[in-house]
């Protein structure tokens, strides 16, 4: 059994927070680090993701968010690029 998650590509995020506010399950939050574009970027933090895709559609950037469903993830890892 895999897990659902949203991967945020850190350097493609413009920090608009729309994904954070759109997610019905509070899976995303804004981090403190600054990316190469100069923005604080969103990150995936919680495993309550249903892979509904609302964050993906809210995000104005084509490639910043990718949503995975039922994806095998190494035990203990926090998926979604919030490394």
């Amino acid at each position: 059994m895999g897990t659902n998650y949203a991967h945020v590509e850190a350097d493609l995020c413009k920090g608009c927070r729309l994904c954070v506010e759109t997610c019905p399950h509070d899976c995303l939050e804004m981090g403190n680090e600054i990316n190469t574009l100069g923005y604080q970027y969103a990150r995936f933090v919680k495993h309550t993701c249903t892979a509904c895709g609302l964050c993906y559609y809210a995000c104005p950037e084509p490639e910043a968010i990718t949503v995975y469903r039922d994806e095998p993830v190494a035990e203990g890892a926090v998926p979604g690029g919030a490394e």
């Binding site: 493609l12 413009k14 920090g15 608009c16 927070r17 729309l18 574009l37 923005y39 993906y56 559609y57 809210a58 995000c59 104005p60 950037e61 084509p62 490639e63 910043a64």
Partner: peptide, 15 residues
């Protein structure tokens, strides 16, 4: 990345 400002609607419509 696009040339659109953060939070702009165009990106979503494009998508």
């Amino acid at each position: 990345t696009t040339h659109y400002c953060p939070g702009c609607g165009h990106g979503t419509v494009h998508k």
